[in-house]
């Protein structure tokens, strides 16, 4: 028996909205410690990693490890049927071929339940090594979203250059060039609005904006986003999922032709 109840059900809605355009299907691995997901996009350029700790749920029970293959656009459609303030419970029996979703309004006057078919998926899990990154930038997630959107007007790629002074995002194309520089915040009165650069070594890397724009769909999940970079390795774009865990996107760099 698997059951996970989340009073802040809107987190599920936001999480699905964050990944459903990048991934068509994925396995939710449920165990006694929580729910994890790892999946590559269809082009194998990026990878999504989700971790939700059992402690972060209001009720959590998982008697046997369970791998639920889910068609994400379908789950997203069902999640859209939940109100923003609803409590969401996900349930499955062992060896089930369906998952149940129960949406309760805060005042308990409305309860909806949906059942969705699971799918057979055979995906490979990649080992992601623990890495010390040369640069870690924390910034408002809305700012990151805005920068990716704006620079997409100019080109397909963004060059991210990080030094101890700050971080610079640049794009160029037929119509010209654009540069957006963010300096490290002088004061950190409002933690959510701060730009913080933690740098061991300056880096300059190129990434496809198309993917960063997909990642930025996670903006409603968290006020801050964290970018971790080292030379010649994938960028990590991390959004915290409240007290539950994290949503991380890994993006392979582009190299000069």
């Amino acid at each position: 028996m698997f059951e996970a109840r989340l009073v802040q059900g809107s987190l599920w809605k936001k999480l699905l909205e964050s990944i459903k355009d990048l991934l068509n299907e994925a396995i939710f691995d449920c165990s006694s410690t929580g729910i994890t997901l790892q999946a590559m996009d269809s082009s194998h350029v990026s990878l999504v990693s989700i971790s939700m700790n059992s402690d972060g749920f209001d009720t959590y029970r998982c008697d046997r490890n369970l791998s639920m293959g889910i068609h994400l656009p379908s789950l997203s459609k069902i999640m859209k049927c939940a109100g923003n303030d609803d409590i969401i419970t996900m349930k499955a029996t062992d060896d089930a071929d369906t998952v149940s979703l129960v949406f309760e309004s805060q005042n308990n006057e409305k309860v909806s339940d949906y059942e969705m078919k699971l799918i057979d998926l055979d995906t490979e899990h990649l080992g992601i090594p623990e890495t010390e990154y040369s640069c870690v930038v924390k910034m408002p997630s809305s700012e990151f979203q805005r920068i990716c959107r704006d620079l997409s007007q100019l080109g397909d790629s963004v060059v991210i250059a990080c030094t101890k002074e700050g971080v610079k995002f640049s794009a160029s194309g037929e119509l010209g060039t654009g540069n957006i520089k963010l300096c490290q915040s002088a004061s950190t009165d409002k933690e959510e609005e701060a730009v913080v650069v933690d740098m061991n070594e300056a880096v300059c890397l190129t990434f496809a904006l198309r993917y960063l724009n997909f990642f930025a769909k996670a903006t409603p999940l968290s006020a801050q986003v964290q970018l971790s970079m080292s030379k010649d390795v994938p960028l990590v774009v991390e959004y915290k999922i409240s007290e539950l865990g994290f949503l991380r996107f890994y993006l392979a760099p582009k190299i000069e032709d």
Binding site: Y250, K254, E256
Partner: peptide, 14 residues
């Protein structure tokens, strides 16, 4: 295309 690397070339399959 255009020098885009694959994520699977960085992370190993166990």
């Amino acid at each position: 295309p255009h020098g885009q690397m694959k994520i699977s070339s960085f992370f190993s399959s166990p």
